[in-house]
Design a protein around this nucleic acid. Structure first.
Length: 572
DNA sequence: GCGGATCAC
DNA sequence: TATGGTGATCCGC
């Protein structure tokens, strides 16, 4: 029974099946054919059915958003010209705070795992091969010509490229990764690694001290990396992290691209840029934005009135800044105390038998205990995650008034959360611990090693930290556990992070206005005064739009939950 | 605090 | 035949 779906529906499903990484990089012109093959291979599988279901729900959500948009636009008192004028005011304000003074670099090793494998087995050079097990981590550039992508199931990749050579994660990647990070950190000791194969630098100081151009600096960095590791790296140079990241993709592999440090040229660059290229905009956000006519960053301006009316759904300020090509330009190493969770999960062939499922849970618990022990974290909220053989994912959580570390405890809690859900057919079990407490004292380490050993706050000036308070073993205990000391949220109160959002390095700075990213004096008064002035404009707009308090940060999630699914349970 | 969902790597 | 693991964030409730 072939039931014809609306063409939009199939198109988006076919695209969805092609995998998350499709569309991020440049797509070849016969991507449509490739997507067709992928869809055909997948058809009928449980994975496919689940993707289809998710795609349908997204379509419904879009329908709802379009109705909401029409409703808002036609609301009495709404004047689109006036709304546009107000947005233009915000744009003017944002523009006036553009900072072109810092030179940011994003570096990215070219197909890192694949390149390391070639070094270990030179016969792979020039051949289509991929690294991974059931799902690909990386594909060589030859394999990519066939449409093979990371995140793709191996059997699908083989269908696209029958000659594809599969290589399992044989080598150790950490040594070359550390070596590259060490080299890059020579150009900025505050380097921020982003995963094992990329990172951010602020080379402003380095270039000034060595009296060289940023281009020459990055050429030097890239050739040094190559000489010392035989790995090629691509890089982007720009006035902020977002642009640098986008630029590093432009001349990949083994190339670099420099953004002009000129607001007019930056804006013309952004105008044609597909929104999907913006870090943080994935396949879902892409479809949502596309539904209201936004495909490129230039379209953000065209539809600014709609976005203003639908700030709640789309996050106006963040999109406006994106359209202008404005983003954070502060680079700092990740800090240990910023960690929010630690977890472990495992996929296996679907299991129904209760005892077998519990065995898997126990394994996961043992793994988690070991990781927590090694990294010296404990926590008081435990979240169980399970995935059915239908690929639907669920979580169940519980918080405690004590710190959980031992596998026996983890296992007992895991069972408590899981057993009421059974019987089920499960293909994945995971456990995650949040509300963490650092068992390692704030013990600043020295040298380059800090990048690799999970942090250890390398910023001594940032945390004078009362010498005795850290001796109190229960400093992080929640209120009810230490009634005498109501000073919860130590990590927020220690350094004014309570109003800052960290999402990726793009917004990780400590004393930066979330609206305009200006660096603000750390005194609360100055910071809040600035923030308020920054947000007042959106407040005006909001009042007209319909109501709702002011948006508290620039980065709005586009996916407000508007349909409530029954908290799915298999009926027995 | 909990659960669902998106996103990056 | 068959589609990963870790961590973060956001939203609604």
């Amino acid at each position: 029974m072939v039931e014809p779906l609306p063409s939009q529906e199939t198109a988006s499903l076919v695209k969805r099946l092609a995998g998350p990484s499709t569309g991020k990089a440049g797509l070849s012109k016969d991507q449509t054919d490739i997507n067709r093959v992928i869809a055909d291979v997948s058809k009928g599988s449980k994975f496919y059915e689940n993707e289809k279901k998710k795609d349908k729900e997204l379509s419904k959500k879009i329908e709802h958003i379009l109705h909401l948009r029409d409703d808002l636009i036609n609301r009495p008192g709404v004047n689109l010209a006036k709304t546009e004028a107000q947005v233009d005011q915000i744009l003017h304000k944002l523009e006036s705070e553009r900072d072109l003074s810092q030179t940011i670099v994003h570096f990215d090793l070219d197909s890192f795992f694949a390149s390391v494998e070639v070094l270990n087995d030179p016969t792979l050079a020039g051949k289509p091969f991929a690294v991974g097990h059931s799902v690909l981590s990386t594909a060589s550039y030859e394999a990519r010509k066939y449409g093979v992508r990371s995140g793709m199931a191996t059997f699908v990749a083989k269908k696209l490229c029958p000659q594809l050579i599969m290589v399992s994660h044989s080598s150790s990647y950490s040594e070359p990764s550390h070596k590259v990070m060490e080299i890059c950190s020579r150009y900025d000791p505050q380097m921020c690694p982003a995963g094992c194969d990329e990172g951010y630098l602020n080379i402003t100081k380095y270039c000034a001290e060595h009296n060289i151009s940023s281009e020459a600096c990055v050429e030097h960095l890239r050739s040094t990396v190559f000489n010392e590791t035989k790995l090629t790296v691509s890089a982007g140079i720009a006035p902020n992290l977002m642009l640098a990241k986008i630029c590093s993709d432009k001349n990949k592999p083994n190339g670099q691209y420099s953004m002009p440090f000129d607001s007019v040229l930056i804006k013309s660059f952004m105008k044609e840029l597909p929104i999907r290229r913006i870090p943080g905009i994935g396949r879902v956000s892409e479809r949502l934005l596309e539904s209201i006519g936004i495909k490129t960053c230039g379209d953000i301006y065209t539809h600014r009135a709609t976005l203003s009316l639908m700030d709640k759904q789309f996050g106006l300020i963040h999109l406006l800044r994106t359209h202008l090509g404005i983003a954070s330009n502060t680079v700092q190493p990740p800090q240990r105390e910023e960690r929010k969770s630690i977890g472990a999960e495992r996929t296996f062939s679907p299991l129904q038998d209760k005892q077998k499922i519990l065995d898997k849970l126990e394994e996961v618990c043992a793994e988690l205990e070991s990781d927590m022990e090694q990294t010296q974290w404990t926590g008081r909220t435990i979240t169980l995650k399970y995935k059915l053989d239908s690929f639907e994912v669920f979580t169940r959580a519980k918080s405690f008034d004590r710190w959980i570390s031992k596998k026996e405890e983890l296992f007992a809690i895991g069972q408590e959360l899981l057993l009421p859900e059974l019987p089920l057919t499960i293909r994945l079990i995971g456990l995650r611990v949040t509300k963490l407490k650092d068992l390692r004292g704030p013990n600043p380490s020295t040298g380059i090693k800090r990048f690799f050993d999970a942090g250890n706050s390398p910023n001594p000036n940032k945390k004078p930290k009362l010498a005795d308070s850290e001796e109190v073993p229960d400093e992080n205990l929640p209120d009810f556990a230490s009634p005498a000391n109501p000073s919860v949220k130590p990590s927020s109160s220690r350094n004014e992070k309570s109003r800052t959002q960290h999402q990726s390095p793009f917004q990780r700075e400590t004393h930066q206005c979330p609206v305009c990213d200006k660096q603000i004096p750390t005194e609360n008064h100055a910071f809040n005064a600035h923030l308020d002035s920054c947000l007042s404009r959106s407040a005006i707009r909001q009042a007209q739009a319909e109501a709702r308090p002011s948006p508290k940060q620039a980065q709005g999630n586009m996916l407000e939950r508007w349909t409530k699914m029954a908290p799915k349970r298999l009926d027995r």
